[in-house]
Design a protein around this nucleic acid. Structure first.
Lengths: 231, 231
DNA sequence: TTGCGTTGTGCCATAGTCGATACAACGCTG
DNA sequence: CAGCGTTGTATCGACTATGGCACAACGCAA
């Protein structure tokens, strides 16, 4: 069952949301220098684009300095606030894209202890601390590969000296080396592969290869559990 | 400019996407035992729900075992594949929700070296390794608070012994303690606050309070840069 | 004054989504 | 055989989003 996670970002404020479509419109205005030319270059109607800008400004404040008449008939340009908005939109989108691409290892387990939104979950691989929704004991916990850091056993931080609440000793079972990023599989307790995304530079510095003993650590706040149907 | 990032998840396959709405429909079928009752309980039309199920099955394979006639007139129930689909939907949605909530520290800088998708960026706070889109030198790098781990200086891993490629020494300037999670601000190099989300248990174990010296580490693969307009 | 290209506004047409309704087919029960 | 509640299918109408178009207002330039 190969499905591809996808997402739509939006920045909300005062009940209305700035979507990808709006982002494109603002960017086009910035480039074209006029609302009219922007709508044209996007193949959209001017009327709708104009109304949409007003709508957005209603919620987000002044976004486009528009002037009519004058040399060339007038024109429009983005305000600083609009540029700032575009920047945060791109930033948020990049974050989401990161989690959409990242692969992750998922474990099923049961919560054995709970303290507010934090819980410790008993899984096949051992106990894991994760942020967990309330009122559920049967859960699946997912650990994103970009959240687990690998350490040489000798250099691994003592459990008492770090805020990384999860720590597993294991040995490397595979290194899938890309150009600059590598996906390494670590066999924790029995023989369960935990995926970690690291730089190839780290692979070389730590001398990671099949058989290398490592200590994998990841934060409780970065691993999430969701309820699962009891089977 | 306080905007609230929001998102819509969907699982794509064969060009069609399973949305939140579809998730609700499938869940309702599971609970009600019939497509008809499910549509009713959601306040939707049966006709549309039925068509949608067929549409989804076209792309995702058999999802609902439907039978008509017989005792009670028939009924429907989810296939294992549908249940699996629901589970991964929830899982993915939880991941996205995590990044939507997490606060993050953003730094502006310029890439000074690059190696494929990885780059080192010179920022006010020092050099940071981050995954970076191609063809840009002016960037904004964002570090999610749940991605940075705090270490006691004595226990901090040596740079050579860990896959965490970013390491900053600093001291705690503030602890915003929640019920089980705490947001601690760390002043790195000059006096730039880096946000870290840790458990209150970690706060106590590490004795974190204003003035405590700590070493903050985070992985290059977990920090992302996006292009920014040259000012 | 005329011309020009822009912004601002209103109205209509079109397409897509979705609920409402109606009806046939189905298969067990009484 | 009749009754029942389900699935399957077609058709209609309401609502929304969006493009197309028309026209006024604007302000500078020639």
């Amino acid at each position: 069952m190969d499905v591809s996670p996808d997402f739509d970002v939006q920045l909300g404020r005062d009940g209305i949301a700035l979507t990808v479509r709006d982002r494109e419109l603002l960017a086009a205005i910035d480039e074209a220098g006029s609302l009219n030319a922007a709508a044209d270059s996007l193949g959209r109607s001017y009327a709708h684009a104009q109304r949409r800008v007003v709508e957005l400004e209603d919620a987000f404040g002044s976004l486009v300095d528009r002037s009519r008449g004058g040399g060339g008939g007038g024109g429009s340009e983005l305000t600083d606030r609009a540029r700032e908005l575009l920047a945060t939109f791109d930033r948020v989108r990049a974050e989401f894209a990161g989690v959409a691409e990242a692969d992750e290892t998922v474990l099923t387990g049961r919560v054995v202890e709970r303290d507010g939104e934090l819980a410790t979950v008993e899984t096949e691989a051992g106990r894991i601390r994760a942020v967990t929704p309330p009122d559920c004991t049967a859960v699946v916990v997912t650990i994103r590969a970009d959240a687990v850091t690998l350490n040489r056993p000798a250099d691994a931080p003592e459990p008492g000296g770090t805020s990384a609440r999860n720590r597993f000793e294991g040995e490397v079972v595979g290194v899938d080396r890309g150009e600059t990023l590598a996906r390494v599989s670590v066999a924790v307790d029995p023989d369960l592969p935990l995926a970690a995304l690291v730089t190839v530079e780290s692979v070389e510095r730590l001398g990671l290869a099949a058989g290398t003993p490592v200590v994998a650590t990841f934060k409780a706040t970065a691993t999430r559990a969701v309820a699962r149907a009891e089977s």
